[in-house]
Nucleic acid binder design. Structure first.
Lengths: 226, 226
DNA sequence: TATCCTTTGTCAACACTTTGTCACACATTC
DNA sequence: GAATGTGTGACAAAGTGTTGACAAAGGATA
């Protein structure tokens, strides 16, 4: 069962690069270079995943994204590709209905990892991840704790999303930094991550000083336990 | 690294046949004849793959399948075996979380091919290594002894991982130091390794003073015997 | 078997590393 | 420009690692 991916990207180089990598990883690929073509190809082929650049000729990525979601095709997953620009673009993207986002420039490996993750989550069911009363809705940028909505900052949201995508895995601080600053070889300190974790814990743990959800694994990193 | 397969099948003939074939192909096999035994053996041994007959005494294959998925989602592959042949059943099985499906009667070669395929697919990342009731899950930073989780420090964990990756090899103290401090020409003393080994033994040996897993090879180093 | 020498086991003190927490400066958003 | 979010360094607290001294065990020799 090979999976079909639609790549919407106006830059020929990048589009072909993505195509090559997707092929190498066993996906079938169709491409579109602008918004109109994207919508055509989408109706024609019904891909299970769309990689969508936000900056497009003819119809903006936002339009395409919204259009896709209007098709009531919740069975399609969507990963946005955004330029570096403002960092809260990401949240906007997720709110618009993307399942994940990648910022340019990205490494092909990072992109592939996200593709795998999104598809593993199972496309049609990925509107929310739910672990023990903690619900995150990537497409809405919303987090519920025991039914009550809680307010997270961008980075807290990103971290939590990443944790909930990878439950039970030990995530190193390095990985977490990557998640927060996907571009640039950032020299973010470990303490920064710790600080974010602390704030996250205050919001999602019932006893923040005895964390039960985000536990620290000494010498290794942190781990989300459902 | 030999892989551990749990075969759950109530028909003795078929179970033994499968076992023989798996052994011939280099797998280690444990078996269960009913649903309850299957769950027991599963927690005890954490196999990499389960071959599961759907028609079982005591707890149906469906129940066991679901239960297994609740325990470990991504760390174990699952192939269903059934007499039922409707393709509708097959879909159900796959939805329930099986990675593949075999209908009786099947040829042993077909089964082996599917086993290989499923393990190849699921095993890119080393999810766990299993030796005689001792299971290490590198990505989760977890160690199970007879199904019970035990707590190791970073270096203990690294050492044990290295040992379990290289069973039956005599590892010199020098190699072990390398493993603990991969960079930097550290001038760690032998006694340091011994100390770590002692602590490890206290945690994983049933009689720490008579170690059966990590044995010392006088004048050479230590050896992990499965 | 008694003796000697080498290797390994054990332990607790101490040094060191890792993590939690905080206040503050800087950045961003509205 | 007020409010909020984010990164940083300092310090405290907790947890681990290393070491050296000594005991015990194993091997060799005669």
């Amino acid at each position: 069962m090979t999976q079909l991916v639609l790549v919407v990207e106006d830059d020929d180089m990048i589009r072909e690069l993505i195509e090559i990598y997707l092929n190498k990883n066993g996906y079938e690929v169709i491409t579109a270079a602008d918004g109109e073509e994207a919508m055509e190809k989408f109706t024609l082929y019904s891909p299970c995943l769309v990689l969508l650049d936000l900056m497009l000729p003819k119809a903006s990525g936002e339009d395409v994204c919204q259009w896709i979601r209007e098709q009531e095709r919740n069975e399609v997953s969507l990963i946005m590709i955004t330029a570096k620009t403002s960092s809260d673009q990401k949240i906007k993207g997720l709110k618009m209905g993307a399942d994940d986002y990648v910022t340019k420039p990205f490494s092909p490996n990072e992109l592939m990892a996200r593709v795998e993750a999104v598809l593993r989550r199972g496309g049609q069911f990925c509107q929310k991840i739910n672990h023990r009363g903690l619900v995150i809705k990537p497409r809405k940028g919303e987090v519920l704790l025991n039914g009550r909505k809680i307010q997270l900052t961008k980075y807290e949201f990103n971290l939590l999303f990443y944790f909930m995508e990878n439950p039970n895995l030990v995530l190193t601080r390095e990985q977490l930094v990557q998640q927060i600053h996907p571009y640039a070889e950032s020299d973010i300190l470990d303490r920064t991550i710790d600080a974010h974790i602390k704030k996250l814990r205050e919001k999602i743990e019932s006893v923040p000083s005895k964390p039960a959800r985000i536990v620290t694994v000494r010498g290794m990193g942190y781990q989300f336990v459902p």
